[in-house]
Simulated scan of single mutants.
Amino acid sequence: MNKVLTESTPVNLTSDFKEITKMRLAVSVVFSSVAGYFLGADVVDFVTVLLLAIGGYLMVGASNAFNQVIEKDLDALMNRTKNRPIPAGRMSVTKALIIAILFTVVGVGVLYFINPVTAMFGAVSIVLYVAVYTPLKTRTPLSVFVGAFPGAIPFMLGWVAATNHFSIEPGTLFMIQFFWQFPHFWALGWWLYDDYERGGFFMLPTGKRDKGTAVQIILYTIWTIIISLVPVTGATGSLYLTPISGVLIFLLGLLMLKYAVQLYKKRDEKTAKQLMFASVTYITLLQIIYVLDKFIRTWI
């Protein structure tokens, strides 16, 4: 291990840093937060946007670093994680903890500079992810339910950063991303079931790739679509969505639902993978549509 650590190159260190903080996941979380900010802000302050992006990345990076320290022995058992910096011996636990702690302190500080409410929700997301969700992953399928709470915070965090308070509007953004996570993570859990089983993780609601799990994926996909369209009714305060944008999101939802139904029929890894990517496409385009809808209405 020491030999590997000694011979690490700057390129490897950069790669390991990206891996320990899960850069791609962190960037997607930052994207959600910034989208929420644009929805909540009357006037866009790009300094706040920058602080939100930096703080959001640091908070997600901290959560992921803590997670990889806790799960280092389990990561070594799974093909998808055995080459992560800690189980592969390229990074020590001490170094990972320093990154995690430093990111937590600086991240909370940056978000606090925006406003205290934003910092509070950022800190809550780390605590829930690290202290509650992570330990439950090897004990019960309910871990996905618990993990959906910190996972749903980023979209509404941006609105809170823009307004300094929590209300029905960020609550709706929270619910959209909350329900979306179930078909997303259950599809991922189905696709990588064998690998998760090697690590002792319980990711599917029934614990198996069966009809019961497939039915729940379909139901939560439907709930995701319904919650996503509630702003069209005008019942969510200043968070409003025009009918045209509502139709676009409904069509995106039907695409995701199509793969959920196919998974029920086929119950294979290929379809689960397709559903997982369809869910990523759904939430990304939904956030873009929500933001464009607001600014187009403003310009018109």
Rank of each mutant, 00 (worst) to 15 (best):
M1C: 07
M1H: 13
V4F: 01
V4D: 03
P10M: 10
N12F: 04
L13Y: 05
F17Q: 01
M23Y: 11
V30F: 14
V34Y: 07
V47N: 13
T48L: 02
T48H: 02
V49I: 09
V49E: 08
I54F: 15
G56F: 03
S63P: 12
A65E: 11
F66H: 00
V69E: 07
A76Y: 07
M78A: 02
N79G: 05
R80W: 07
T81W: 01
R84T: 04
I86D: 11
P87R: 03
K95L: 15
L102G: 12
G107E: 09
V108N: 10
L111S: 09
L111N: 11
F113M: 14
F113I: 11
V117A: 12
M120A: 15
F121I: 12
A123P: 02
Y129D: 11
P135A: 09
L136D: 03
T140F: 00
L142W: 13
V144M: 07
F145N: 03
P150K: 08
P150M: 08
A152R: 03
I153C: 05
I153G: 06
L157M: 15
W159F: 14
A161T: 11
A162Q: 06
I168W: 06
T172N: 14
F174Y: 14
Q181I: 01
F182N: 00
F182D: 00
P183E: 00
Y193L: 03
D195G: 09
E197K: 12
F201G: 00
T206A: 00
R209L: 09
K211T: 13
G212N: 13
A214I: 02
I225K: 14
I227T: 08
L229N: 14
P231M: 01
P231N: 02
V232N: 04
G234A: 06
A235G: 12
T236H: 02
S245E: 01
L248G: 04
F250R: 03
L251T: 10
L252R: 08
G253M: 09
K258D: 14
Y259I: 03
Q262N: 15
L263H: 06
R267M: 12
D268G: 05
A278P: 07
S279E: 00
V280C: 04
I283C: 09
L286Y: 15
Q287N: 15
D293T: 06
